[in-house]
Structure formats: C-alpha cells, structure tokens
Simulated assay, not measured.
Amino acid sequence: MRKAGNEQSRPPVKRRLKTKPVLVVLGILLAGNLLWFTLWATKDGGSAAEGSEQVASVGKTSITREDWMAAMESQYGRETLRELVNRSVMEAAAKKYGIRVSDGEIDLELALLRSEGEGTSDAFGETDGSLREQVKSRLILEKVLTKDVIVEDGDIKRYYKENEALYDVKSAYRASVIVLPDQEEAEKALKELDNGSSFGVLARERSIDAASASLGGDIGYVGESSENIDPAIVKAAEGMKEGDIAGPVTLADGTVAVIQVSGVYKGRSFKFDEVKDQIRRELALEQLTQSVTPEAFWNEFDAQWFYGDE
C-alpha cells in the first residue's frame, strides 16, 4: 500500500472555457442505455420461453425477463435511441463537411476532463471506447457549428497566455472508496480485502457513503483540482499505482476511508500548437447566439426513429 507525498500547488485559471467537457452524466447515461439496448434488441429474437423466464421473485410473485425489458424500455428507450441516432447523424455530418477528429483532439478533451475530477463511473460497465465516441460526436458537432466563425489569431494567443495553467494537466487517479464509521471497521475491511474480498462488493455492502457505495465505491478521477473530494482522499491517492489499496484514511467529518486506485492518468503539459485549434473552437462557440444540439441536423440527414417526429 502506498500513499502520496506532498501536494503541488497549481496556478489559478483566470477564465474557464465555457464548453469544458462535462461528460459524467452523459457517460453514465450512455453506458446504461447501451446496456438496456443490448437486452431490448434480443427480446424479439428470443423464444417465448425466454420472454417468460423468471429473473426475480418476491414471495410467490414472479418478475419475468419480458417485464424487466419492458420496464427498461419505458425508462431508457427514448434516450438510448436518441443517442444512437445523434451519433449516426454526426458521422454523416462529418462526411458531408469534410470534418475529421483526431485521436490527439480526443486525448486533449479527456485530459481536461480528468483534470477537473470529472471522471466517469463504471457503474453500468462503461468503457473508454464509449467515452471516446461521446467526445468524438461532440467535437464533430462543435466543428460543424464553428466552421465559418472567424476568430483572430491574437485572441487565441492571448487566451492561451492568460490560461496556460489550464493546459498543465496534473496526474489523475481513478479512485474507489469504502467509507466506514471508525478505524476499527476500516481495519476489518482491509483484512477482508487482504483475504481476497472484492473491493466493489465490499463497498456496496459496508460503505456508509450511499452515493459511492451504489457505484461499488467509484468516485471517478481525483487529483489536485478535485474540489468536491475530501483532501485526505486526494492526498492518499496521489502517487499510488494501479491496483494499490491504501488506508485507513481519516476524513474531515471523522469517518474513515479505505481507498483503491484502479487506473492512473499521467499528467502532461500541452503546448500552444497542441491546443490552438481547441481554443479557436471554444472562442468561436462563445460567439454563437444560441446552443445547437445534434437534433437540429436530423432533417438534413433524413433521420427517422421509432418515436415519430422529434
């Protein structure tokens, strides 16, 4: 088990980009919806016996697979299909307007996302691939909207100089926590982990922090700029390696946490030439009088869906 050393100070950012990536909710929604879509898509292809298969029961009352999938369709169906249509519409727009999104551009957006402590949750089995696709679709939309907007080179350089610290992205750590009432309970949890217990399962069973417990303890990426994470968690996570477990760590409210790091993003500094296109796009977006969503392009690319007119 390892704990980090001294925290490094980060210069204040004078102005934040108006359209900074905030994909936490989108990532979780997409992943949950895609899970639902996979199950729903198999409904008609399965046999009647599979549809009536019991997936749960309460006393003598059965809940069938058909009941389960119908409930998921009601809750997630519309937004799942919307996301899939929007992604296809953006791909069509990219081809029509000759727009390309490079891996480097996606990497930059993800780095800025992690630097804000806005990492996504694996609660619904989200993958890095699905998150990258989300970022790619958003970048295509932004490039279409700003392709004819003029931004002076001087404004781009000035913004970079004023906000250079924003592009000095520090290391971020994908962390999970088990929050317990006292040191004794934390020691018991550590012992169970040493004996092979699953961190995620233990977090769901034992953690008194309901929000993270429901996600198997996952709190996303943490680092120097994490504003809503207890500083003791950030300090403990910094410097840990993937798979490390640390604790007990006393938190500000007197509770005690056990921490696991499941992934490490190594920080880096982005130079002007690497971010000038992103700054130009962000400044161009600020000139637009109203926000535009992918749905605005549905008619242009003859997009139709099960739910009728959008």
Rank of each mutant, 00 (worst) to 15 (best):
Glu224Gln: 13
Gly254Phe: 01
Glu242Asp: 14
Asp218Ser: 10
Val222Tyr: 03
Gly247Glu: 01
Gly243Asp: 10
Val256Tyr: 06
Thr250Tyr: 12
Gly223Met: 06
Ile219Trp: 01
Thr255Ile: 11
Asp244Glu: 14
Glu224Asp: 13
Glu224Cys: 12
Tyr221Phe: 12
Ala232Val: 03
Ser262Cys: 08
Tyr221Met: 08
Ser262Tyr: 04
Glu242Lys: 15
Leu251Asn: 12
Gly217Tyr: 04
Ile229Cys: 15
Asp244Trp: 10
Val264Glu: 08
Gly223Ile: 04
Glu238Ser: 07
Gly263Arg: 11
Val256Trp: 05
Ala232Lys: 07
Lys235Gly: 12
Ser262Ala: 13
Ile233Lys: 04
Ala246Asn: 07
Val222Ala: 09
Val222Phe: 09
Ser226Ile: 09
Gly247Ser: 07
Asn228Leu: 13
Glu227Asn: 12
Val264Leu: 13
Ala252His: 08
Ile233Val: 15
Gly239Leu: 02
Glu242Ala: 15
Pro231Ser: 08
Asp244His: 14
Gly217Ser: 13
Ile229Phe: 08
Val234Asn: 01
Gln260Arg: 15
Val258Arg: 02
Gln260Tyr: 04
Tyr221Ala: 04
Ile259Leu: 08
Thr255Arg: 15
Ala232Cys: 09
Val261Leu: 12
Ile219Leu: 05
Gly254Gln: 00
Glu242Arg: 14
Met240Pro: 02
Ala237Phe: 03
Ala257Phe: 03
Val256Leu: 13
Asp244Tyr: 08
Tyr221Glu: 04
Glu224His: 13
Ser225Gln: 14
Leu251Gln: 11
Gly220Phe: 02
Val234Asp: 01
Gly243Ile: 06
Ile245Gln: 11
Ala257Arg: 02
Ser262Gln: 12
Gly239Gln: 04
Ile259Trp: 00
Glu238His: 05
Asp218Ala: 10
Ile245Lys: 09
Glu227Ser: 14
Ala252Asp: 13
Met240Cys: 12
Lys241Asp: 14
Pro248Ile: 06
Val256His: 11
Glu242Thr: 15
Ala237Thr: 05
Val234Met: 06
Gly243Asn: 11
Ser262Gly: 15
Glu242Gly: 13
Val249Gln: 03
Gly239Glu: 05
Glu238Thr: 08
Asp253Cys: 10
Ile229Ala: 10
Met240Thr: 07
Met240Leu: 11
Asp230Glu: 09
Met240Asn: 06
Asp218Gly: 05
Ser226Asn: 12
Gly263Trp: 03
Val261Cys: 09
Glu224Pro: 09
Ala246Gln: 01
Gly239Ile: 00
Asp253Ala: 13
Ile233Asn: 03
Gly223Trp: 03
Val249Pro: 01
Lys235Trp: 07
Gly247Phe: 02
Val249Met: 06
Ser226Arg: 06
Glu224Trp: 12
Thr250Met: 12
Ala237Met: 08
Ala257Leu: 05
Glu238Gln: 14
Gln260Pro: 00
Ile233Pro: 00
Val234Phe: 01
Thr255Pro: 12
Pro248Asp: 11
Met240Phe: 08
Ile233Gln: 02
Met240Val: 07
Tyr221Asn: 01
